[in-house]
Nucleic acid binder design. Structure first.
Lengths: 196, 196, 196, 196
DNA sequence: AATGAATGAGGTTTCATTCAT
DNA sequence: CATGAATGAAACCTCATTCAT
């Protein structure tokens, strides 16, 4: 009958936050940020609307936290060794990792892809990850240059287009789009280009 | 002040419909279907809410009509000569036309791209165009096969990914993404493949 | 069947605004700003909650408009002739007018008196009227000085206290507090002081 | 670590009750009864919401207890010697005490003044003190009569108005309103009237 | 005695849609 | 054809209160 300890409370909060955020990712992905209601999210999370507001001070805040949380997770995956050099091997690893992360978080990426197209919501979210992303692009740029590729900028555009196009088609129809096949195809393309 | 003829009336109606639909495309693209209010659309179209409902019986209907109308327009562009054969030249024309259409209707494609990611809204709209699209893919398939390309399916996946990836990046940031450059790059890629 | 003219719409809006504001004054006076719900106000005004928001963009805004509107009305009563001189006669008239205005707008003054005690709400409202009020006090100050009153500041404090005390007691219990009697008493007090 | 005695427990409870009530007075004065949340009060008291409900069974109950507690305290100050006679000296003492009590409990009086204007909340609270108050008025009435004052009722109205007006102005702006000056002024007024 | 997670009713606000004019 | 006032359902959010620990 003694009251819960601070640790117990913290664990409850942390676990419930995760439950809510996961529920929200699902509903946002299905209905879009604006189309999803807080009631739906609470219901999917198995809690009352009121409690959701105990954990997140608004629907907007909930979205921000989801993005922030995902960004933090992805940082870890992609933070390259900071020697400033990206080898061809690392590049292939990066591509594969990229697809793996998407496959493991389809709903998150669906949500994120929709946000990218929605300026009015996009401006709500932090863009810390943009910098990491830009750094990575820079490393790939250097790799392409070192590998004797002529039109480096064009090749980078092609890379981002292929990858983003594959991801968008996959998250739009995860049960039908053959993501593994396109992944192989992209890797194959670069195997030739980077003439390992 | 002679009374207007039936034709005149119909033309007026048709023009106003277009004005409303264009306003709606803009607002939908900016705010998403759910985030856009009928008031905003009416205001942007320069008419009253009531009149909007005179032309479209609901917000949903308005969306459907936009999609249908765009599909009709695009039919015209892409309906190939029905001889069942797509030449390499026609293929290149098709790619170029594709990008041109996107560049001329950025907001429409932004809206459409967002819809593709939103199953709950997507199911509202007609999918007549899907068939045309599938036919076209079939023609490209045949062309690739005829051209001695080995992994035809993989190559098709790569094509749709590159194009969709380019489009999505462009509509997300039309002022910054170098769409012409990626267009050239894609064309170049197929110039090699199709060994014209 | 022809649509309403702009004038007709303006009249409707103007009349309904007044109806809503009057309903709100009553409910605010009875329940306080925070204790009054928009539903109550709409019900008392005989309209739907939604319509209220067509006229006032928030409950706060409604309060502000009430205060502003009242201030404007009261300006007219009290704007003195701008010769910068207040005669004893004018002073008596001012006191009487003051009480009359309160008696004719009990609920408004009840609301206003409560607001004065509530800093968190008070800061929402404009204080344009404060200046007019300060000017008036200045004129009374001069009158008292001209009339040979010794402790002018003390006498001013006494004046505002008597008047405000009378008003507060009256608005708290309008059916029981003998406002006319206290009014006479105050006037009598100054008749002696100003030895007309 | 000997177990606490019943007395110790009760003292602890009593002290905590006081802490909570003081916190509540502050928050009620700042935000009004309806605008203050139980969370704010608990936070200001430095305890949890749950514990607050251990001491007071509802927000309403907390308000009632505050009023009751204050009334009890004030009884002590003002319960006159029960000989049924109020001397002029005692009257002056009463006035001074009155202002002193207000100055020492600004927030309580601010809260109380706001309540007086709010019938819907006012009816929640006990009005035991009203009787004491009425008795006191009676004693003052007698004093005025004995002192040869002509319009006794009018003079009583003036008295309550002056005092309440001074208090209300003071509690509305305690840092600016010169309460000591108006206190002297009122005392002076009665020194003349009661021709001591 | 003490905590804060949890609820649910009810508050404020928005908006698709209808309708009198 | 055209207006915008009006509605009502449903959205977001708050908060007094309860309860397991």
């Amino acid at each position: 009958m003694s009251p819960r300890t601070v640790e117990q409370y913290e664990q409850i909060r942390s676990e419930k936050r995760t439950i809510i955020m996961n529920a929200a990712i699902e509903v946002f992905a299905e209905k879009s940020f604006q189309g999803a209601s807080v009631s739906m999210i609470a219901q999917k999370a198995g809690i009352s609307k009121g409690l959701l507001y105990n954990y997140f001070k608004s629907k907007e805040e909930l979205l921000k936290e989801i993005i922030k949380n995902a960004a933090d997770t992805i940082y870890q995956y992609f933070d390259p060794n900071h020697d400033g050099i990206l080898t061809a091997e690392e590049f292939f690893f990066f591509i594969r990792k990229n697809f793996q992360v998407v496959k493991e978080n389809v709903n998150y990426w669906k949500l994120y892809s929709a946000l990218v197209l929605q300026p009015s919501v996009l401006k709500l979210i932090d863009h810390d990850f943009d910098e990491v992303s830009a750094n990575y692009i820079k490393l790939v740029y250097d790799l392409f240059e070192r590998s004797g590729i002529e039109d480096v900028e064009g090749e980078l555009l092609l890379l981002t287009s292929m990858v983003k196009g594959a991801i968008i088609q996959y998250v739009a129809m995860p049960d039908f789009f053959p993501i593994d096949k396109i992944e192989s195809k992209i890797l194959e393309y670069y195997r030739n280009k980077l003439s390992v």
